[in-house]
Write a protein that binds this DNA or RNA. Structure first.
Length: 347
DNA sequence: CTTATTTGACCCTA
DNA sequence: TAGGGTCAAATAAG
């Protein structure tokens, strides 16, 4: 029998690489749409070439089918409809784990590490009697709760409701902060790839799912965001970080207004980056730090050491208990290596 | 009856 | 080995 370990590592990696490449391609295309024609071809760089370069590994990935197990999902990004009745990550029986299951678990943990990660801090108005974190528009299923050392409140673990059916591996951790019980620190892993993600548009998402939204202003929360995305251990990467001017929001409860942040990838538009005047009000009003990743173009990574912690807002650092460092140890070789020096590129 | 949550046990990583 | 993350049976809710 063929070695299942290598097989599973292979398709898991394919899924993740496909996910990352697809996202990168989409963002580069968005970038292209918003850039002036003169900026698109600047010196050695051509965005069109980047998109084309991304197409190659994507095509290669999509051509490769998982070997050995025909029931395994092939794509994670909706390129291929997926129906699955049983989670591939573990069978019903708990013990003893087969080698296959152990491999799955090992790869599952590794895969989680390379998922993009960002953190939000959300203040909830106590007047609403809101016990949990605000609805962000997606369907989450709580799968665990854990008391964390040196914290007063347990940490709750959520995953996408459609994980098994649609292979949507988005997850989030919710923890109430010790310093301010009305403040929740929410850490997201992975982008939603389920149907709901594509159907929900910014501004609609929490309206659709949050019944409290129908109560008009009853659900009032102030929303301060500190977003932090990580996609570690890409063979190549660039992290053009930017910060938006922080405006003084009233401390009183405000309706959650940065729905655009529900999908961090789609929310980061070139407009946000290059033209402050084009910023949508929600983004302007929120204090946002978006370290972001894209395939890189050129020779070497300009910022030798991405100390991503620096990119988290001081506020978030102040209130959020430290989460486990999820740096990946999976080397991903995409077969091409590009880097563009962001500041120079956008000159 | 179906779906979601709770919670103790198991497993992995540092 | 401790702490954190996940599973899945039991339970609750709709």
């Amino acid at each position: 029998m063929e070695n299942n370990t290598s097989t599973m590592i292979s398709w898991e990696k394919k899924i993740m690489i496909n996910e990352l490449l697809t996202q990168a391609k989409e963002e580069v295309k968005q970038l292209q749409m918003h850039l002036a024609p003169s900026a698109i071809t600047c010196g050695k760089l051509s965005i069109t070439k980047i998109v084309s370069a991304l197409e190659i590994p994507l095509f290669m990935l999509n051509e490769i089918k998982p070997e050995g197990r025909g029931d395994q999902p092939q794509m994670m990004t909706g390129l291929t409809p997926i129906t699955q009745t049983e989670s591939p990550l573990r069978t019903v029986s708990r013990s003893p784990r087969s080698d296959y299951e152990s491999d799955l678990m090992a790869n599952y943990f590794k895969k989680r590490k390379i998922l993009p990660k960002w953190t939000e801090t959300v203040r909830v108005c106590e007047l609403t009697g809101f016990e949990g974190p605000p609805d962000d528009g997606y369907s989450w299923r709580k799968y665990g709760q854990k008391d964390i050392l040196n914290t007063n409140y347990p940490r709750a673990y959520y995953r996408c409701t459609h994980r098994n059916v649609q292979m949507c591996f988005a997850k989030k951790l919710v923890q109430r902060t010790d310093k301010d019980p009305s403040l929740f620190c929410i850490t997201y892993w992975g982008k939603h790839t389920c149907i709901q993600a594509s159907h929900l548009q910014p501004g609609e998402q929490h309206k659709k799912h949050d019944p409290k939204h129908n109560k008009s202003k009853e659900t009032l929360i102030s929303f301060q965001t500190s977003c932090h995305v990580r996609a570690e251990d890409l063979a190549t990467r660039v992290v053009p970080s930017f910060s938006l001017p922080s405006t003084s929001k009233p401390a009183s409860c405000l309706e959650k207004e940065n729905d655009n942040n529900n999908n961090i990838f789609s929310s980061l538009t070139p407009d946000n980056h290059f033209s402050g005047s084009l910023l949508s009000p929600p983004l302007v009003s929120a204090e946002v730090y978006y370290p972001y990743y894209l395939p890189t173009y050129g020779h070497t990574v300009q910022t030798s050491d991405y100390d991503v912690n620096e990119l988290i807002s001081a506020a978030a650092l102040d209130v959020c208990p430290p989460f486990q460092d999820l740096d990946s140890d999976i080397p991903i070789q995409s077969g091409f290596s590009y880097l563009f020096d962001t500041p120079r590129f956008f000159d």
